[in-house]
Design a protein around this nucleic acid. Sequence first.
DNA 1: TTTGAGAGTCACCGTGCGGTTACATCTTGA
DNA 2: TCAAGATGTAACCGCACGGTGACTCTCAAA
Lengths: 92, 92
Amino acid sequence: MIIRTTKDLAHLIRESRSRKHITQEGLATLAGVSRKWVVDLEAGKRTTDISMVLRTLRALGLGVDVREARDRSGDDGVDLDRIIERSRRPRR
Amino acid sequence: MIIRTTKDLAHLIRESRSRKHITQEGLATLAGVSRKWVVDLEAGKRTTDISMVLRTLRALGLGVDVREARDRSGDDGVDLDRIIERSRRPRR
DNA sequence: TTTGAGAGTCACCGTGCGGTTACATCTTGA
DNA sequence: TCAAGATGTAACCGCACGGTGACTCTCAAA
């Protein structure tokens, strides 16, 4: 599964967790985080700690693969500049 | 490339960036973050914001793939429990 | 119906992260 | 040699993130 946004990640984790019949509490313990953090992650909270995420994914037996995106333009119509612009902090 | 730790990610980003002749400043602008953040990321700082990382990877034309790790045990001898224990906050 | 587990949410608190700014170092080209 | 660009680092500050604990709600099993 290709991950593009934190929401994608949220769905992936939640689905993988339930498919394996692990509770939020259990996953939290496995990954060494709090249950609140798992709740937040699965809720698609914008920001999260990446080392925690890596641990959580490993706890679920998931591997992360990063590589050159072959056809970046055809991608899926995502306009990077728009995304960046939107996620930028208001300039004040 | 398989990502297991934030250090892996750091190396990946730095290498990809220089190979594309993009400056830290340039990448920071592309990803909508500060240069300091890019410096910290490439220095392998333990914690970073995952949505920023995703944006940065996309800015470098890299895709993230998450999937079931086939042979999890044989993996590479990583002891998850030890990792978790080590990265846990001191209990006080 | 009752009970218990799983999940969502809330408030509080301390800490560490990210942005900003400034400065030092190093390399490269004029 | 000097100037400009790229990078690393340090200090400061505001704020939002993560942990804790408690509460509620839902649902399934007894």
